[in-house]
Simulated scan of single mutants.
Amino acid sequence: MTPMIWLGLVAVLLLAEAMTVGLTTIWFAGGALVAAIASFFQVNLVIQVLLFLVISLVLLIFTRPWAIRFMNSNREKTNVDSLIGESAVILEKVDNLKETGKAQVRGMEWTVRTEKDEETVEKGEVVTIVKVQGVKLIVKRRKEEIL
C-alpha cells in the first residue's frame, strides 16, 4: 500500500474520533500512522498490516485506560453522581428481600437497598452510598475505624 492510503485511513479514523469522542478510533489512527511510515520506507505489505494491528492494539490496551482516567479526573460530579461516597442515615430497616429501606441524605428521603440481598441494615445506622440505580441508593455498611 502507498503511504497515502494509510494517511487517508488516519484521516478517516481521526474524523470518526472527533465525531464520537469515544477514545477508540484514535488508537487505530496511531497504528495507521506507523504503517504509513513503514510504507514510506517500502516495507512489505504484510509487515505494514501487522504493524497497524499490533501498534493499534498496544495503544488501545495500554493507553486508553490512562487517557480515560485523565479525561474524567476534572469532571465535576453533578446531581445523583455527587451522592456516591457520601454518608446516609438509615430511617427504615434495609432488607432487600422484604423490599424495605429508607435513608436520609442531604435532607432528602431515598429508597435504599444493600449491595447483597442477604445483608440488612438497622434503623439509625450510618452507611456509605456506593451507587445509584434509578431512584434507589445502593449502600454498604461503614467499616469501623480503628483509632
Rank of each mutant, 00 (worst) to 15 (best):
V89A: 09
M19C: 08
G30W: 02
V126P: 01
T120W: 00
V49S: 14
V34W: 01
L59T: 10
T128Q: 11
E99T: 10
F40K: 04
I129K: 03
P3Q: 09
G8D: 01
R106G: 13
F40T: 12
L83Y: 15
F40Y: 15
A32W: 04
V139T: 02
K93N: 05
Q104P: 00
A35R: 01
N44I: 08
L51Y: 07
N74H: 09
K123N: 14
G101Y: 03
V58L: 15
R142P: 00
E99C: 07
A18Y: 06
L147F: 10
M4W: 09
K93C: 05
V58F: 04
V105R: 00
P3Y: 15
L14R: 06
V89D: 12
L60E: 10
N44T: 05
I55V: 15
E86A: 08
P3M: 09
L91F: 13
K93H: 09
M19V: 13
I47K: 01
I146Y: 05
A36F: 07
Q42M: 06
K140N: 05
I37S: 11
I55G: 10
W27P: 03
V46D: 11
M71C: 03
K136N: 06
K116P: 02
A36H: 03
L51K: 03
A67G: 08
L147P: 02
V126H: 07
V12G: 07
R64F: 15
D81M: 04
